[in-house]
Design a protein around this nucleic acid. Sequence first.
DNA 1: GACTATAATATACTAATGTATAGTTATTGT
DNA 2: ACAATAACTATACATTAGTATATTATAGTC
Lengths: 201, 201
Amino acid sequence: MVKPLTKKQEAIFLFIKQSIKKTGFPPTVREIGNQFSITVKGAYDHLKAIEKKGYLHCEAGKSRAIELLVNKEDVYPDVCSIPVVGTIAAGIPVLAQENIESYIQLPSGLLPQGTLFALRIKGDSMIGAGIFNGDIAVIKQQSDANNGAIVAALLDDEATLKILKKTERKVHLLSANEKYGVITADTISILGTLAAIFRTY
Amino acid sequence: MVKPLTKKQEAIFLFIKQSIKKTGFPPTVREIGNQFSITVKGAYDHLKAIEKKGYLHCEAGKSRAIELLVNKEDVYPDVCSIPVVGTIAAGIPVLAQENIESYIQLPSGLLPQGTLFALRIKGDSMIGAGIFNGDIAVIKQQSDANNGAIVAALLDDEATLKILKKTERKVHLLSANEKYGVITADTISILGTLAAIFRTY
DNA sequence: GACTATAATATACTAATGTATAGTTATTGT
DNA sequence: ACAATAACTATACATTAGTATATTATAGTC
């Protein structure tokens, strides 16, 4: 789709990316010219050539108004900032400021759309599903889930991961560890479904 | 350390951050003034006040030359770009371009220092350690590891996760699954130790 | 051979942008 | 009561920076 850049264009495109990364804003055409010891117009023509090939877009008239269209993730990584929630006070929404402990950045490309939050796993009740104490679980917020899905449910002011099993009239929450029993109830408050697990060693 | 911002300053600081996030470059003083329906000098004075309080730095004379000093991570997330390596051709280094399939962004604050790379797990040989088929394993590159550590070792052009056990003269690689046997050798080429696991559902 | 793209220079023009002067009004702490 | 800070206006000026004209030279393509 996008035409290949010439060596010079490649070098200039790289310089633009590095400038943004270093200073936080794109260079002017004169700054580009200076870097490569060429005149303003030389740099300007290169910039326009790179734009024509679809690698970036310049807003006409504005200074330093270079928007990257290719390799954006080199400069602005494509991540999602997910709130990590701790103990959840009854009554208030899960994502209320009071519940948010910190934020974690994870690759947005690998996560589902929708409202996400993260829990720090306590205990070994889901060890059979490869979810360990201390793991960070990313949850996609939703009030219901499919049979057999791993869900976050609110039990005693704690968001807990369990396997959801629905039968005729009852809802069951299973653990992935024989040591733990099954919780059965008429209705259960589901916070969301498991979207990802992150663990550090 | 840093003085608190006034409400107006807070709003302007937020606008600057959002502008960078949206367009990729900071606003001019006139763009700030426009947003808040104040004159150029009004916006300029606010900018200088915010700078004086240490939240940002303006390079004199340059356009849009606003460098964030506080809350940088809101705009430029603090992530590490980790190469995901696939099949490893014998003889060439693990991190050679030929081996790199893609990159994954993970939070640098939760990862160790040093050279990192990632593997996509194939098979269920480490299921007992909560490492499943399809998981992404982040490896810290090192040629040796402690006894009992989970390591990535090179077996038949594949980087494989195993538990390292060292005895008097031999090195053993254990699986975390009874179905698999133990590999024993005089020496083994260790690529690194397990630093993190990332899994999506 | 005509044509297009690349890579330049020198010079110039204009629009965009940072910075300054001079003043107003209100608020707050000493 | 006074000084300092905040939050503005209107106007002006100088510099920065994008854009244009005209020109040269080389290399590959139809």
